[in-house]
Lab assay of single mutants.
Amino acid sequence: MEVRTIKVFTTVDNINLHTQVVDMSMTYGQQFGPTYLDGADVTKIKPHNSHEGKTFYVLPNDDTLRVEAFEYYHTTDPSFLGRYMSALNHTKKWKYPQVNGLTSIKWADNNCYLATALLTLQQIELKFNPPALQDAYYRARAGEAANFCALILAYCNKTVGELGDVRETMSYLFQHANLDSCKRVLNVVCKTCGQQQTTLKGVEAVMYMGTLSYEQFKKGVQIPCTCGKQATKYLVQQESPFVMMSAPPAQYELKHGTFTCASEYTGNYQCGHYKHITSKETLYCIDGALLTKSSEYKGPITDVFYKENSYTTTIK
C-alpha cells in the first residue's frame, strides 16, 4: 500500500517557510505537534488534498525554529505562539472599519479597549522592536488589523473576551517599542525636605499616572512627601515624541487643539466601556464603527496623549 502524501510549508514567522512532505494517514499533531492554519487549530486533523502548498504555523520545537521565533517575536515564552494563534482565530472574524481616516474595530468580545489602543497607536510616533509587531502594525494602518490585535493580546497575556485596560495595554506595548531616546527629568520640591531631581528613561519617561493635564504637570502637581507634608512635583525636561497622561476616570474637559487623542471610560472596574476622542479640525468621538463630532467635550476621561518633541522648564 502506497503512502499518500502532500507537500506543505511549516513556519513560526510566515517569513521562513520549511518544506514538509506530510503523510495523509496521520494527523498534523502526530507529525508536527500543535499546528495552526489561519489561526485555526488543526492539530487533530489529517492532511487533505486542499492543504497542498498551504502554510501551517507550528510551535518552535527545534533550534532553527526557536531562533526564527525569537528573532521575529522577541520572546522565548513557549506558550506565546499558541496564544497568538488562538487569538487570531477570533480577531480574523472582527470587522476593521476605516473611521475618520483611522483603522478602528467594530465592537465584539469586549474589544473596546483594543480599538482605543489601536486608534491611539496610529496617532503617536512609535516604532516597535519585534519585527512581528512592526509588520502587523503597518498592515493594521492599511486596514488589516487582525494579526496586530492578536499579537497585542498575546504580548499582554490576554484572551479574547476578557476586559482590558488601555493604560495597561499601552504599557505592555511600550515595553516592546523603541523608547531608548526618551528621557524625563522631574523635580520634587518640599518646604521641609528641599528639592530632589529624578531622571527617568524609556517607558517611565512617557507615562504618568495622577493627572490628565500635561500643562498642569509642567506647572506642578501636589504629591505627598515622605515627611508627610505636601510637596510639588513638576516637569523639568521632556525628550520624547509623545507623552501619555493618565488618571482614574473623572469628568474632564478636553479643549480642541490642546491634545492629540484621549480615552474615555464609562462604567466601573468590573464592567465598563471605552471610547476614543481625537482632536482634528474639530473633536471626534470614535466608538467602534461609530463616529460623532463636537466642538467641545466633557466626560469621564482616563488617558490623554500629547505630541511632544523637546521641553525644558522655565521655572527657576
Rank of each mutant, 00 (worst) to 15 (best):
Glu2Gln: 15
Arg4Thr: 14
Arg4Ser: 09
Arg4Lys: 15
Thr5Gly: 13
Thr5Ser: 14
Thr5Cys: 15
Lys7Gly: 05
Lys7Ile: 00
Val8Ser: 01
Phe9Arg: 14
Thr10Ser: 10
Thr10Ala: 05
Thr11Ile: 08
Val12Lys: 00
Asn14Leu: 03
His18Tyr: 09
Thr19Ile: 13
Gln20Lys: 11
Val21Trp: 14
Val21Ala: 09
Val22Gly: 06
Asp23Ala: 10
Met24His: 10
Met24Leu: 15
Met26Cys: 12
Met26Arg: 15
Thr27Leu: 13
Tyr28Ala: 00
Gly29Pro: 02
Gly29Gln: 08
Gly29Leu: 04
Gln30Phe: 04
Gln31Glu: 00
Gln31Cys: 10
Phe32Leu: 08
Pro34Thr: 05
Pro34Glu: 12
Tyr36Asn: 07
Leu37Phe: 11
Leu37Asp: 11
Asp41Trp: 05
Thr43Cys: 10
Thr43Met: 08
Lys44Ser: 10
Pro47Leu: 05
His48Gln: 13
His48Ser: 11
Asn49Val: 14
Asn49Gln: 15
Ser50Trp: 14
Ser50Glu: 13
Ser50His: 15
His51Met: 07
Glu52Gln: 12
Glu52His: 10
Thr55Val: 09
Thr55Leu: 07
Thr55Ile: 15
Tyr57Leu: 08
Tyr57His: 07
Val58Gly: 00
Pro60Ile: 00
Asn61Gln: 07
Asn61Glu: 15
Asp63His: 09
Thr64Met: 13
Leu65Asp: 08
Val67Gln: 11
Ala69Phe: 07
Ala69Pro: 05
Ala69Leu: 05
Phe70Met: 13
Phe70Cys: 12
Glu71Ile: 13
Tyr72Arg: 11
Tyr73Asn: 05
Tyr73His: 01
Asp77Phe: 01
Asp77Trp: 00
Asp77Val: 02
Asp77Ile: 03
Ser79Leu: 11
Leu81Gly: 05
Leu81Cys: 08
Gly82Cys: 09
Gly82Trp: 10
Arg83Met: 03
Tyr84Asp: 00
Met85Gly: 02
Ala87Thr: 03
Asn89Glu: 01
His90Trp: 06
Lys93Ala: 11
Trp94Ala: 00
Trp94Gly: 02
Lys95Asp: 11
Tyr96Met: 02
Pro97Val: 07
Pro97Arg: 06
Pro97Tyr: 11
Gln98Met: 14
Gln98Ser: 13
Val99Asp: 00
Val99Arg: 03
Asn100Glu: 09
Asn100Ile: 07
Asn100Phe: 09
Leu102Gly: 00
Thr103Ser: 06
Thr103Asn: 02
Ser104Met: 00
Trp107Gln: 14
Ala108Gln: 13
Asn111Ile: 05
Cys112Thr: 10
Cys112Gly: 14
Cys112Gln: 12
Leu114Lys: 00
Leu114Trp: 09
Ala117Thr: 15
Leu118Cys: 01
Leu118Met: 11
Leu119Glu: 11
Thr120Pro: 03
Thr120Gly: 08
Leu121Asp: 00
Gln122Met: 02
Gln122Glu: 03
Gln122Pro: 04
Gln123Ile: 04
Glu125Tyr: 00
Leu126Met: 12
Leu126Gly: 03
Phe128Pro: 02
Asn129Tyr: 13
Pro130Cys: 13
Pro130Ala: 04
Pro131Gly: 03
Gln134Thr: 11
Gln134Ser: 09
Asp135Ala: 12
Asp135Val: 08
Asp135Tyr: 06
Ala136Asn: 06
Arg139Gly: 08
Ala140Met: 13
Ala142Ser: 12
Ala142Phe: 11
Ala145Thr: 02
Asn147Trp: 02
Phe148Trp: 00
Phe148Ser: 03
Cys149Phe: 04
Ala150Leu: 00
Ala150Trp: 03
Ala150Lys: 00
Ala150Gln: 02
Ile152Asp: 00
Ile152Gly: 01
Ile152Ser: 00
Ile152Trp: 03
Leu153Asn: 03
Leu153Pro: 01
Leu153Thr: 00
Tyr155Gly: 01
Asn157Pro: 09
Lys158Leu: 14
Lys158Ala: 01
Thr159Cys: 15
Thr159Phe: 06
Glu162Lys: 07
Glu162Asn: 07
Glu162Cys: 07
Leu163Ala: 15
Leu163Cys: 09
Gly164Leu: 00
Gly164Tyr: 03
Asp165Glu: 15
Val166Glu: 01
Val166Leu: 11
Val166Lys: 01
Arg167Val: 08
Glu168Thr: 05
Thr169Gly: 01
Met170Ala: 05
Met170Ser: 00
Ser171Ile: 13
Ser171Val: 06
Ser171Arg: 14
Ser171Pro: 03
Tyr172Cys: 14
Tyr172Pro: 00
Phe174Pro: 00
Phe174His: 01
Gln175Ser: 09
Gln175Asn: 09
Ala177Cys: 15
Leu179Trp: 06
Asp180Gly: 15
Ser181His: 15
Cys182Phe: 12
Cys182Trp: 03
Lys183Tyr: 10
Lys183Cys: 08
Arg184Ile: 14
Val185Trp: 11
Val185Ser: 05
Leu186Trp: 13
Leu186Pro: 04
Asn187Thr: 10
Asn187Gly: 10
Val188Tyr: 08
Val188Thr: 13
Val188Gly: 14
Val189Asn: 13
Lys191Arg: 13
Cys193Arg: 06
Cys193Glu: 08
Cys193Leu: 04
Cys193Gly: 02
Gln195His: 14
Gln195Pro: 15
Gln196Pro: 05
Gln196Lys: 09
Thr198Lys: 07
Thr199Asn: 11
Thr199Phe: 12
Leu200Trp: 02
Leu200Gly: 05
Leu200Cys: 13
Leu200Phe: 11
Lys201His: 11
Gly202Cys: 04
Gly202Leu: 04
Glu204Arg: 10
Ala205Cys: 04
Val206Pro: 03
Tyr208Ala: 11
Met209Asn: 15
Gly210Tyr: 02
Leu212Gln: 02
Ser213Glu: 08
Ser213Gly: 05
Ser213Phe: 00
Tyr214His: 08
Tyr214Trp: 09
Tyr214Thr: 04
Glu215Cys: 03
Gln216Cys: 11
Phe217Cys: 00
Phe217Lys: 05
Phe217Ser: 07
Lys218Tyr: 06
Lys218Met: 07
Gly220Cys: 02
Val221Lys: 07
Val221Asn: 06
Val221Leu: 11
Gln222His: 08
Gln222Val: 09
Ile223Asp: 15
Ile223Val: 04
Pro224Gln: 13
Thr226Arg: 13
Gly228Trp: 01
Gln230Glu: 13
Gln230Lys: 10
Gln230Ile: 12
Ala231His: 04
Ala231Trp: 02
Tyr234Pro: 08
Tyr234Val: 12
Leu235Ile: 09
Leu235Val: 09
Val236His: 15
Gln237His: 12
Gln238His: 03
Glu239Asn: 07
Pro241Ala: 11
Pro241Val: 06
Val243His: 02
Met245Thr: 05
Met245Ile: 01
Met245Phe: 11
Met245Asp: 06
Ser246Asp: 06
Ser246Ile: 04
Ala247Asp: 05
Pro248Ile: 15
Pro248Gly: 12
Pro248Ala: 09
Pro249Glu: 12
Pro249Arg: 09
Pro249Thr: 08
Gln251Lys: 12
Tyr252Asn: 05
Tyr252Cys: 11
Glu253Ala: 15
Leu254Tyr: 03
Leu254His: 06
Lys255Ser: 07
His256Met: 08
Gly257Val: 03
Gly257Thr: 06
Thr258Leu: 09
Thr258Tyr: 07
Phe259Thr: 04
Thr260Met: 14
Thr260Ala: 04
Ser263Leu: 07
Ser263Gly: 05
Glu264Gln: 09
Gly267Glu: 15
Asn268Tyr: 09
Tyr269His: 11
Tyr269Ala: 15
Tyr269Leu: 15
Cys271Asn: 00
Gly272Thr: 04
Gly272Glu: 06
Gly272Ser: 05
His273Pro: 02
Tyr274Pro: 07
Tyr274Asn: 06
Lys275Leu: 02
His276Tyr: 14
Ile277Leu: 09
Ile277Tyr: 01
Thr278His: 05
Ser279Asn: 06
Lys280Ala: 13
Lys280Gln: 14
Lys280Ile: 07
Glu281Ser: 08
Thr282Ile: 03
Leu283Pro: 09
Cys285Leu: 15
Cys285Tyr: 07
Ile286Thr: 03
Ile286Gln: 14
Asp287Cys: 01
Ala289Trp: 00
Leu291Gln: 12
Thr292Cys: 12
Lys293Asp: 10
Lys293Phe: 08
Ser294Gly: 10
Ser294Lys: 14
Ser295Cys: 13
Ser295Leu: 12
Ser295Gln: 12
Tyr297Phe: 08
Lys298Val: 14
Ile301Val: 11
Asp303Glu: 07
Asp303Asn: 12
Tyr306Val: 04
Tyr306Ala: 04
Tyr306Lys: 04
Tyr306Leu: 05
Tyr306Asn: 06
Lys307Glu: 14
Glu308Asn: 10
Asn309Met: 11
Ser310Trp: 10
Ser310Arg: 13
Ser310Leu: 14
Tyr311Arg: 08
Thr312Leu: 13
Thr312Ser: 14
Thr312Ile: 15
Thr314Pro: 08
Ile315Gly: 13
Lys316Val: 13
